[in-house]
């Protein structure tokens, strides 16, 4: 079992947990993910590592409630435990393994959207600890959904917060912020973008025009996460890649986002049904259009 040492809400529907997993905390690196399974009957859910403490053996995950499984997970509290917690999976971010001489001379920009803010954190922190101050754009729909701003202030070079509705920080989506900064004369050698697929798609479109090489972290549907089932396949530069072993980070200018977004929807109906069941419990008597309860 993998005990939960801290559990708290960061925003509506977004929660954070510190989980004791010493084997993972010992060797994990920024960019990698874990798979969590709550109990015997739960799904295996891939989650990007959002922080780690090698000494205490802790892994931080940040999760958004999007379906029945994440709703159930959100009900766990400090003192509860995950039945299974495996990792670190996937390849670390490129800068971890690239020659440091090259990395330290680069100017990095991180573009984080919504929940994607959390997995950006260990990357920016790693660079900070290695004497590299990266610029960071955090985007959220509104003020209440901006997460981890304080943590970022401690490790980022310039931090820009933008909200879609202008309720906090700059106004508009991350692409607008990026374009504005560019127009103000800012330049970067590499952009790392993590967030909803649609956001990554449009950030990549923009950075391609601006000529900024861009890395994205893909989070497709997975089952085993160790290179066995092929569920997480996506097309990169016309070739089939597996996010769990070839990724999760890829050259954003080569990813076929439209295909990847279609693949994300495959279990939508199942998820909706399961979500209704989980939310309404025994009171669920149809209305989902699937279970036949309303016939």
């Amino acid at each position: 079992m993998y005990p939960i040492r801290r559990a708290e809400w960061l925003a509506e529907n977004i929660f954070l947990m510190d989980v004791e997993a010493p084997r993972i905390a010992k060797y994990c690196e920024p960019g990698q993910f874990i798979i969590a399974k709550m109990d015997e009957k739960a799904e295996r859910i891939p989650l990007t590592i959002c922080n780690y403490d090698r000494e205490k053996g802790l892994i931080t995950i940040v999760v958004q409630v999007v379906g029945a499984s994440t709703l159930r997970m959100s009900r766990l509290q400090a003192g509860d435990a995950f039945m299974d917690f495996v990792g670190p999976l996937g390849r670390p971010s490129d800068f971890v393994t690239e020659p440091f001489e090259e990395v330290k001379n680069r100017k990095y920009l991180f573009v984080a959207g919504g929940l994607g803010t959390a997995p950006v954190y260990p990357q920016v922190k790693w660079l900070h600890e290695h004497g590299i101050e990266a610029d960071v754009i955090i985007g959220a729909r509104n003020k209440d959904l901006v997460i981890m701003e304080e943590e970022f202030q401690a490790v980022a070079g310039n931090l820009y917060v933008t909200t879609d509705d202008g309720s906090y920080g700059r106004s508009g989506m991350v692409t607008k912020c990026l374009q504005d900064l560019y127009d103000e004369g800012k330049r970067w050698d590499v952009c790392v973008c993590i967030g909803p697929m649609i956001m990554m798609k449009f950030v990549c479109k923009l950075t391609k025009e601006l000529g900024i090489p861009t890395i994205v972290s893909m989070n497709p549907i997975m089952v085993d996460g160790t290179g066995m089932c092929g569920a997480c396949r996506l097309v990169v530069d016309g070739k089939v890649k597996f996010a769990c072993v070839d990724g999760p980070e890829f050259d954003g200018h080569l990813v076929d986002f439209d295909q990847a977004m279609k693949r994300q929807t495959i279990y939508k109906t199942f998820e909706g049904q399961a979500m209704l069941k989980a939310k309404e419990g025994d009171t669920h008597h149809g209305g989902c259009g699937q279970c036949g309860g309303d016939k």
């Binding site: 066995m228 089932c229 097309v235 089939v240 072993v245 295909q259 279609k262």
Partner: peptide, 20 residues
Amino acid sequence: LPKFMGIPGEQANGVFSANE
């Protein structure tokens, strides 16, 4: 990793490896 045929349409929703 599962092998695929490399034919058009293999990334569609509804195409699985037997492993998955």
